[in-house]
């Protein structure tokens, strides 16, 4: 594997992983797993599915790290390409008539906020999450992917294009379409709730 990484954090990690250092795998996971999870959750809108995707992505990454070529793009781009691919697989699987065990048991598996939040803030965050989740649900999966990459991960249209395998212009137009769809999806009450949370 070529080790010409520009990233000062990633480079030593890669070297340690190549040497078989198990703690380096943990460090890499700690560094990138939250982003992968947020992306998967934003696309799938389901906690358990997002966790499954995180698991599949990192198992693949740790097994195939040698396939990553830093000359072809950033590590994050490679990681998110795998994540989007796994999310699409998960969505296909979900098209089968299955019953979500967590839904049946009402285990309350919605995402939690930071552990340090007080109950009031946590409640507002949950409400804001719910509002945004409902708005995102109205989008098609392609538009949701675009929104998650653009606003959830802060990627450029060029990076989005690389990940989604589309021209940057198409990525831009998907964001425009998402704005149009979200505008009608966000009801005035829900907007007020978001405003309250965001201050």
């Amino acid at each position: 594997m070529d080790t010409k990484h520009d990233d000062p954090i990633l480079n030593p990690l890669m070297t340690r992983i190549q040497r078989g250092d198990q703690t380096a795998c943990t460090d890499l996971y700690d560094l990138y797993a939250p982003g992968v999870y947020r992306l998967a959750y934003s696309v799938l809108l389901h906690r358990q599915d997002a966790e499954d995707v995180v698991q599949e992505v990192f198992v693949y990454v740790f097994r195939n790290l040698k396939l990553y070529d830093p000359n072809r793009g950033q590590f994050r781009t490679w990681l998110y390409t795998i994540t989007i691919s796994r999310c699409r697989n998960a969505r296909r699987r979900k098209m089968l008539p299955t019953v979500a065990l967590s839904d049946l048991l009402l285990l309350g598996l919605e995402p939690h906020g930071p552990e340090s939040e007080n109950p009031e803030t946590a409640s507002l965050r949950e409400d804001a999450n719910r509002v945004l989740g409902q708005a995102l649900k109205t989008l098609s999966s392609r538009l949701r992917e675009a929104v998650a990459l653009r606003y959830g991960q802060g990627l450029t249209y060029r990076e989005m294009g690389e990940i989604l395998n589309i021209p940057p212009k198409t990525a831009e137009s998907r964001i425009r379409l998402a704005h149009e769809a979200l505008r009608s999806a966000m009801q005035p009450n829900d907007i007020a709730l978001l405003e309250e949370f965001l201050g």
Binding site: Q22, A33, Y41, Q55, V59, G113, P114, N129, Y151, G152
Partner: peptide, 30 residues
Amino acid sequence: QSQLKREMPAFGCPTHKQLTALLPDILEKS
């Protein structure tokens, strides 16, 4: 746009405990 810019980065934030629970299985499977 402003709503998405402000709200999306925090949307679906996982807890540390949630991600830590996945790690042993990932390392074993890998």
